[in-house]
Amino acid sequence: MLTDQDYERLSAYVDGELSKAERTALETRLDADAELRTELEAIRATIGLLAALPARKAPRNFTLDARTARRAAPRVLFLPAAAFSALSAAAATVLIALSALLYSGAQVAPLASSIALAPTQADAFQREAQATLSSTPLSTEKQSTTASPAQPEESAVMDAAGSAPSVENADQSADNLPAAAPIQESESTVMQFAAPNTTADANLAASGMSAAASAPMLEQAAATPVALSTATPAPTLAPPTATPAPMPASVPQPDNSLPALLLIIGLALLVASITVGVRMGTRWR
């Protein structure tokens, strides 16, 4: 009677997978043991039957068409999808946190200067600026010449400023100012132009860019020579300290629809991020 080990040895012997010592020992036993020889032949015969088993014909071709091949090559899709998922998750976090902050009634005036403002608010600023200056906000040259720096309304506008494009506009307008213009004046000009642009900033936030994205752009603007000379204390995240004008009482409070709007956009981005992430996960196996 053969043991499991005997069968294992015979099986490995057929495959040439025994060590030299094991092989020699087994061959000595085979010489003396007829049963062992019979079992060895049975194993060989079984292997022979299995090896002769004809391949089955595939029921259809498994070739890949161009579309399947594209789907099967996720490297192309993977990076943009991952980037979108991560970016929208980050933007969603910022927007939701922001809406909570605004809703909680925290002192928003300094913060609001760095973030997206609702279009209605921006419009209010714009109207204000127009009333004071009686000029078209988008025409940089007119504004810089007619600006009267001491007016409190413009200082108020300044606090709401903070978008990169506006700083670049400001560079141009600063250029147009007389060389003797006090720094304060150019600052006001910078702020004044920022107001109409807050609408664009809000749009940016809605399209998935976080408000923080404007920070590097501001740095860039500050690095330009013109900006260095006049507009250096650009409206960054902190309110300008050199502003002599008192904070006017007429700073508009953000209305209640703003936090709700931010929350909705944030949640939508979160859902988009999760959806893309999950689909990516199922594709990338």
Binding site: D4, Y7, E8, L10, S11, A12, D15, E17, I43, T46, I47
Partner: peptide, 9 residues
């Protein structure tokens, strides 16, 4: 080795 042996048997 052992799975193969048992399978053949």
């Amino acid at each position: 080795k052992s799975r193969l042996s048992r399978a053949r048997l």
